[in-house]
Amino acid sequence: MSEGQGHYAGAGGQGAIPPPGPYPQSGPYTGPNPYAQPQPYPQPQPQPYAGPNPYAQPLPPQPAPAGLAAPAAASFDGGFPGPRPRRSRISVLLQFTLQWIYAPVWIAALVALFAILLWTGASGPSGPESDSWLKVNRTFVPPRRLKAELTGRPEDWERYVGPILERRIRLAEAGYAAGDGDVGADFGRTVGVKLAVRLYRGLGAAGVVRLAERYGWQGVPAGGDLARVRLSRRYPAPPRVSAPGPQDPPAAPGTPWGARPGRSAFLLPFMLVLQIAYVPVCGVLSLLAFWVKHPEPDYWDRWGARWAVGPRAFRAEFTGSAAAWDRHVRRIVAREVCPGNGKGAEAPRRIRVNLATYRGAGAQHVLRVAAEQGYVLDPAYLPDPGVCVRLYRPDRQV
């Protein structure tokens, strides 16, 4: 009994702490498992979630840094729309067929209306859009456009609108050479062209702009206006050309800035009488051919300076008196400076004096008279004293 109790409490008895081993103990084994079996297929590695966070809150818009402009948002208003929806083939064919009936009737009605207005002395309709009912060509489908309307292919529309665009661009550039265009603050001028949507429906405004870029033109964003496309071209200010000043010695007669040779004193009386008949005839012909545009917008001024003479300019040109020419030039310049017949109207910033006004006095005399009113030679135009003198008042705002 004692032996059993002694064995329980002793060092080697039951329940005693086992003695330490003969070899030192280390941490858990972290090496490869020698009994592990190789996997026949590679195990996929977990990837981080790359989708949007459904619990993320939108950040408020941050203001642009100082000195930097915030980028403009892309919108339809600032671009050029593409092709418009095609018209129904049936409606196009009906319009093409019926136009040969209603177009002559329309023109005959317009001629009758103008005859009635001239006979009764009544005035026609007024307003910014009062002449829209005169444009018969707006409802006319030419044979060249018929194919483009029926097929709807962009290449057919390009073949149709290409010559129209080229012709209008050439007319606008000729108009710039003759003095047309909007003058900017740097004395450069901008000319523009616009096309109605019926001319480029299947090509789109973007296609028209692409064609215009071949000629050095660019598109003008028209906002939400889908009825037309606008094009423009900006020309820089012309180079400075030497011209006599108002206080310089008078230019010699026969030179560009000097007095021009007068017309025959024998023909002037006949011209004064006959122009009463042929000037109105030329004006009526110009109104009847309102759709014909001459490449020189000042064609009427050039023609009038050669074949017409004003009643007040007749005496100065018939006598050749320097004093008479001086009075005539001063009268015309005063009329241009005071468009309200001297009744307190604001003086315009730019005026133009034609050759018929200063023929016997010289273009330099116009500069001398205009300088008294604060006008100088306009730097936005190349001087052309053989046609006109363009004047500019620097202190007058637009």
Rank of each mutant, 00 (worst) to 15 (best):
E3V: 06
E3W: 06
G4N: 08
G10W: 08
G10K: 08
G10I: 06
G13D: 03
Y23M: 12
Q25V: 13
Q25M: 10
P28H: 05
Y35V: 07
Q37M: 11
Y41R: 12
P42G: 10
P46R: 10
P48C: 00
P48H: 04
G51F: 04
P54M: 03
Q57I: 11
Q57W: 01
L59R: 13
P61Y: 07
A66D: 10
A70S: 12
F76P: 09
G82I: 01
L93V: 14
Q95R: 15
Y102M: 06
A103G: 00
I107Q: 06
A109G: 14
L110M: 14
L110C: 07
L110F: 10
L110E: 11
A112Q: 06
A122M: 09
G124R: 09
S130I: 01
K135F: 07
V136P: 04
T139Y: 13
L146E: 04
K147E: 02
E155K: 11
Y160N: 08
I164G: 05
R168E: 13
I169E: 03
R170H: 11
R170D: 12
E173T: 09
A174W: 03
A177W: 02
A178Y: 03
V183T: 14
R189D: 09
T190H: 06
V191P: 00
K194L: 06
A196F: 10
Y200R: 02
R201Q: 14
G202I: 10
L203S: 09
A212Y: 07
Y215R: 15
P221E: 07
D225S: 05
R228S: 15
S232I: 02
R234D: 01
Y235G: 06
Y235W: 12
P236N: 01
P239S: 12
R240S: 13
V241M: 13
Q247A: 14
Q247H: 12
A252E: 12
G254P: 13
G258K: 02
G262T: 02
L268E: 03
P269T: 03
L272A: 15
L272W: 10
P280F: 01
L285M: 13
K293L: 10
W300A: 14
R306H: 07
R306A: 12
W307K: 04
V309E: 09
R312M: 12
F314K: 09
F318C: 00
S321Q: 02
V329K: 03
R330E: 15
R331W: 04
R331C: 00
R331H: 11
P339Q: 04
G342P: 09
A345V: 00
A345E: 13
L355Q: 12
T357C: 09
G360H: 06
G360M: 02
A363F: 06
H365T: 10
L367A: 05
R368W: 03
A370K: 04
E372C: 02
E372D: 11
Q373F: 15
G374C: 08
Y375D: 05
Y381T: 06
P383Q: 09
C388H: 14
Y392K: 04
